[in-house]
C-alpha cells in the first residue's frame, strides 16, 4: 500500500446468509487501487464484482478482512462524501427536472443556491447535456438519462467514482459513445474510477487495470495492467494489442469458470 493508494482491500470476505445456506459472495479478496486509475471489474454474474464495489461504498459490510477508502473505513469515507456512485439504472427522480436531480446531492450536502446552480451547469456541460436542465427525465433517452445520473455523481467534489454496470442496459452504439465520453471525462477530471461490467471490450477499452473475477466463491482470478496507451480512439479496438488483451481477459474468465 503506497501513498498513492486510494482504495485498499485486504483478505476481504463477505458471506450472505440465505435460505439456501451461506453464499460466499467474496472470499479472500485483496486489491489496491491507486489515485487516478480506471479499474474495471469483470466476471460472470455471482462473481461478487458488484458486491465488491458496494463494500467500497459502505453499502455492504464485509464479514472478514479490511477495506480502506482514502485511508479510512468505507463508512467514514461515505460520510466524508468521498465517492460518487452510479447505479445500473439511472434512477432519476421523475418529479424532478434533470437540473433538480443533479441538485439533489448538493441540497443534501448543504451547498448554497449559487453553488448549486453553478455546479449543475458545469457538470451538465461535462456530460454534454447543456440545455437539458429544465427537462424531465421521461423527455430524455435512456443514454441521456444515464449521462444525467453520471453528472449527478460528479456534481459534488468526490474524487472517486464508483460505477456499477452503468451502461449495461443500453444498446451497443449508445454504449460506444458513452464509453468515449467517459474516457474524456476521466481525463478531464482526474478521478479514480471503479467500473463494474460484464463486457470484455468495454473493460479493455476503458481501463488502466482490469480485475478479472470468478464465482463461487467470488474471488479475483487475474489482475491485468493495461498496456494500451492513454489516448484511445474507438478504432483502437481493431489493433493487435487490444485483441490480445481481450484474449487474455477471456482466458482469465474461462479459467475461473473451469475451476468450478
Amino acid at each position: 500500500m503506497s501513498q498513492d493508494t486510494v482504495i485498499s482491500a485486504k483478505n476481504l470476505s463477505l458471506t450472505f446468509q440465505t435460505n439456501d445456506g451461506p453464499v460466499n459472495a467474496l472470499k479472500d479478496v485483496s486489491l489496491d487501487i491507486n489515485r487516478g486509475e480506471f479499474v474495471s471489474f469483470i466476471g460472470p454474474s455471482g462473481c461478487g464484482k458488484t458486491t465488491f464495489l458496494r463494500v467500497m461504498a459502505d453499502l455492504e459490510k464485509p464479514t472478514a478482512g479490511k477495506v480502506t477508502v482514502n485511508g479510512v473505513s468505507p463508512e467514514e469515507a461515505r460520510k466524508n462524501r468521498a465517492y460518487g456512485y452510479v447505479f445500473q439504472a439511472a434512477g432519476l427522480y421523475p418529479w424532478r427536472t434533470i437540473g433538480g436531480n443533479i441538485r439533489l446531492p448538493l441540497e443534501i450536502m448543504g451547498y448554497d443556491k449559487a453553488a448549486q446552480a453553478e455546479r449543475v451547469k458545469q457538470v451538465l456541460e461535462l456530460v454534454e447535456l447543456a440545455g437539458f436542465e429544465k427537462k424531465y427525465p421521461w423527455q430524455l433517452s435512456g443514454g441521456m438519462q444515464q449521462r444525467a445520473s453520471i453528472a449527478r455523481a460528479l456534481a459534488f467534489d468526490a474524487d472517486i467514482l464508483l460505477m456499477d454496470e452503468p451502461f449495461g442496459a443500453l444498446d451497443e452504439i449508445v454504449r460506444d459513445h458513452l464509453n468515449e465520453q467517459l474516457l474524456a471525462l476521466w481525463k478531464k477530471t482526474n478521478k479514480t474510477i471503479g467500473f463494474v461490467t460484464h463486457s470484455i471490450p468495454e473493460a479493455v477499452f476503458l481501463s488502466t487495470k482490469i480485475v478479472v473475477m470468478s464465482p463461487r466463491p467470488g474471488r479475483i482470478s487475474d489482475v491485468i495492467d493495461s498496456p494500451l496507451p492513454a489516448e484511445r480512439p474507438l478504432d483502437i479496438r481493431d489493433t493487435k494489442e487490444f485483441i490480445e488483451l481481450s484474449h487474455r481477459v477471456r482466458e482469465g474468465l474461462r479459467a475461473g469458470h473451469e475451476a468450478e
Binding site: 461515505r78 465517492y83 460518487g84 447505479f87 434512477g91 439533489l104 441540497e107 450536502m109
Partner: peptide, 21 residues
C-alpha cells in the same frame, strides 16, 4: 432499494430521505 442506497451514498439523514424521497 437502489433509490435508498443512492441517498445513503450521499450520507443523507433519515429526515432528508423522508422529505426528498
Amino acid at each position: 432499494a437502489m433509490q435508498l442506497d443512492l441517498l445513503r451514498t450521499y450520507g443523507a439523514t433519515k429526515g432528508q430521505v423522508f422529505w426528498k424521497l
